[in-house]
Design a protein around this nucleic acid. Structure first.
Length: 735
RNA sequence: GGACAAGUAGCUCAGUUGGUUAGAGCGCCUCAUUUACACUGAGGAGGUCACAGGUUCGAGCCCUGUCUUGUCCACCA
């Protein structure tokens, strides 16, 4: 054995051996109780970044449960990440001087498909290099035909049951990307925007959106506002930049009498609240801004202008005509912007598919309240509840090509929609018209990834049956509901909450029992890693430098689970040093064993029986040696305590406690004290040394799989692999 | 407007139902040995636990308030 542990010689060789031996498959423990984690599928549009190394948490749980004898499944996959990927690809095209408009839909889709295939391959290599014991035979991609089939089925079921409707509603629309978004994908920015006090006949009202005035179909005041009682229900004549016009005054409680003058213009086509007011009062929806972000013909001479230009032009004309009473330039408001490009989001009316979420949300809340699902750390429950309580219907239509095209056909005869499970209908089932046109939109990615836990398990083995919850024994029956969903807290609402809603809806069961939310991995300065800052780190480069084991341990050790942490070279070095310490413990015990040493006797302690540690025993295990030495007893007692701590910590998701206990025990108790104490009685201590080393490797294996396997294979007394040995159990010798 | 988290040694962070002299890693200082390991060992300096009250025999931990930092949700015409 080398003096210095060289992980580059050790780490790359084991993964293949494990995988080929079938250790990653649940079938290695065919009779165990199921333990399942579905890997949050990384986006297939870029290689993994350092934050993905946090999957280590899942691997720790998986390896621990596998050693405990559970039938353990960790299912890998990749997400097509619809809009995200299309944006990445468009930038890629841009760099070649092209744009998505240079290609037809089929060609563009195929190009993105090929692009994604390349990335998927890179990602798989990265996941393997980090030692993640995923069952690759069950690998899934969100656009696999059998996954798409499941998603289509859910959509049809929801449509048939009236949970999905086609609505002409105000959506968040990015005029640059040419698609709508859900509420979660909009970022609000604080900005100073001029607030214009404009004259509408006898009234004055405050607005920032002068350019939408051509879409005004009413003026509204609060019903109890004494100042304006005499106007309610009347039509007033107003002077505008396009001449005189008449407009109705209505009363609605949505108006805040405290804001501005207590009068608002109602533009149902261009503001969500106005749209709602319009619905209550049956107002005309007059759209004056197009999907290209320009004013249309209804804006008269202003048509063709972009929103900003129009606003300024109109403002100056109105000032000339004396229609502006005053302008508040200090007004602070919040502007909706596209989370990708920063373009101002235009609220526009558009026909889209919406999900009625209220009922689903109620069940999702209930699942946490009644304990079917637990969230760790618990404080995230508040965020979860608040969002679900106030949730609005979910727009799942996206005007892009990359994704699952919605299986809905519009009949130009009877003007009705037909939804299928994917197959193209020959004629309209309502009127037998053959003129059907498929909706060109695709699903919001989160609608498909929200079904990931059951979509994956229903489509692995055996092949999915026609029902959503097929009868008969398959992965779904055995492994669903899954045990743990572990991901970063930032997608609790985007993804986890939606999985709960859709999972309960489609399967009548929660999709997972425990939700674990880890923190963000930051750079050494505590800053978020991002491509634009240039501080992204490739985990593979770090693994080559310090070892995958060191990365994994560094991410777990020293930070309470759930908290953000910055990753730094000193910390990685510290963990690399720990691997070297362990290596030299092994070297001392194995390479430097004296000739006359007795070894651990395999006939009394079978290799794979799982070591049973005695709890706080005052007696030495007679199987280890005949002598009664106080140091031996002490180290064995500390070993028992450590095993107990680690087991308890893993069962309660206190990973940092577990790693802390192991680090402390192995380095400072075992190496610094006990091993030093055996140097003058080395031969007689050999069985205890081997026993403690062996057990330490077992306890440490979920955290540092590579070095523990390498040392395990060098033990004089070993069998198979530390990966599939039994987890050390504790027996209470006092009883 | 609402919510959550954090504030502990120079830096990065632990500290699980309140209980002796508040811990670790890195850094710093002193010393040791070429040792299984210098990716080492032994020892040391260094903290008014953000602030102000309160509960208690006893508070880093519980309660109230304040300040600072980070994040999220809602949405303003």
């Amino acid at each position: 054995m080398d003096k210095i542990y060289d992980q580059t010689k050790v780490e790359p060789k084991w993964y293949k051996i494990w995988e080929e031996a079938g250790y990653f498959k649940p079938e290695i423990n065919p009779d165990g109780k199921p333990y399942t984690i579905i890997l949050p599928p990384p986006n297939a549009n870029a290689p993994l970044h350092f934050g993905h190394a946090m999957y280590a948490v899942e691997d720790i749980l998986i390896r621990y449960h596998r050693m405990k004898g559970d039938s353990t499944l960790w299912l890998p996959g990749a997400d097509h990440a619809g809009f995200e990927t299309q944006v990445v690809f468009e930038k890629h095209l841009e760099s070649q001087g092209k744009s998505r408009f240079d290609y037809d839909r089929q060609t563009l889709y195929q190009m993105i498909w090929d692009f994604v295939q390349d990335n998927k391959g890179v990602m798989e290599g990265q996941l393997k290099r980090l030692g993640f014991s995923l069952d690759w035979s069950r690998y899934k991609f969100t656009l696999d035909p059998d996954i798409v089939k499941v998603v289509y089925k859910t959509f049809k079921k929801m449509f048939d049951e009236g949970l999905i409707y086609r609505g002409n509603r105000i959506v968040n629309y990015c005029t640059k990307h040419g698609t709508s978004f859900s509420d979660l994908e909009v970022i609000y920015e604080d900005r100073k925007t001029p607030l214009y006090y404009i004259k509408y006949g006898p009234l004055t009202l405050a607005t920032v959106r002068l350019e939408t005035k051509f879409g005004d179909t009413a003026v509204a005041v609060h019903p109890d506002d004494k100042r304006y009682q005499k106007y309610i229900g009347k039509e007033i004549e107003i002077e505008t930049v396009l001449g005189k016009a008449k407009i109705k005054v209505i009363a609605d409680k949505a108006v805040d009498p405290e804001f501005g003058t207590g009068v608002i213009k109602v533009t149902p086509a261009h503001a969500p609240i106005d749209f709602e007011i319009g619905e209550r009062h049956n107002l005309e929806i007059r759209q004056v801004i197009g999907y290209d972000g320009r004013l249309n013909e209804k804006a008269g001479k202003f048509s063709g202008m972009r929103v900003k230009e129009a606003r300024q032009t109109i403002a100056s004309e109105m000032e000339q005509k004396g229609l502006i009473e005053k302008i508040d330039y200090e007004y602070q408001n919040r502007v909706a912007t596209c989370y990708k490009c920063g373009t101002e989001i235009e609220p526009l009316p558009l026909e889209q598919w919406f999900i009625k979420v209220e009922g689903l949300a109620k069940k999702a809340i209930e699942a946490i309240k009644n304990g079917d699902i637990k969230i760790y750390p618990k404080n995230w429950e508040t965020t979860y509840f608040n969002w679900l309580k106030n949730i609005r219907d979910w727009n799942i239509s996206r005007q892009i090509v990359w994704g699952m095209q919605i299986p809905a056909w519009f009949c130009d005869g009877c003007k009705k929609w037909t939804v299928t499970e994917g197959e193209t209908p020959d004629v309209c089932p309502n009127c037998k018209n053959a003129n059907l046109e498929r909706d060109s939109d695709v699903f919001d990615t989160w609608f498909s990834s929200g079904q990931w836990p059951y979509a994956t398990l229903q489509s692995t083995r055996p092949p999915a049956k026609s029902d959503l919850a097929p009868a008969g024994g398959g992965d779904f029956e055995k492994f669903y509901p899954t045990s743990v969903m572990e991901t970063m807290y930032d997608i609790l609402l985007f993804w986890v909450a939606r999985m709960v809603m859709l999972g309960i809806y489609a399967t009548n069961k929660v999709p997972f029992k425990d939700i674990l939310l880890h923190g963000k991995v930051l750079d050494p300065l505590g800053q978020k890693m991002s491509k634009s800052k240039g501080n992204v780190v490739n985990p593979i480069e770090v693994a080559d430098l310090y070892g995958a084991d060191a990365i994994r341990m560094a991410l777990i050790y020293g930070t309470a689970f759930g908290h953000d942490q910055s990753i730094s070279h000193p910390k990685l070095q510290a963990m690399r040093n720990f691997t070297n310490k362990l290596w030299n413990i092994g070297r001392f015990i194995i390479d430097f064993a004296p000739e006359d040493a007795k070894h651990l006797d395999p006939s009394v302690i079978p290799a794979n029986a799982g070591i049973q540690l005695k709890k706080f025993s005052s007696e030495l295990d007679p199987r280890l040696r005949g002598d009664d030495n106080p140091q031996d007893k002490q180290i064995l007692e500390q070993l028992s305590k450590t095993a107990e701590k680690v087991t308890k910590a893993l069962d309660t998701y206190r990973f940092h406690d577990a790693s802390d206990a192991l680090y402390e025990f192995i380095w400072h108790e075992f190496a610094d004290k006990y091993i030093e104490s055996t140097k003058d009685r080395r031969a007689e201590a050999q069985p205890v040394l081997e026993y403690v080393l062996k057990t330490s490797l077992e306890l440490l294996h979920p955290f540092m799989p590579y070095i523990t396997e390498e040392l395990w294979q060098k033990l004089p007394h070993k069998e198979n692999s530390v990966m599939i040995t039994n987890w050390p159990t504790i027996v209470d010798s006092s009883k």
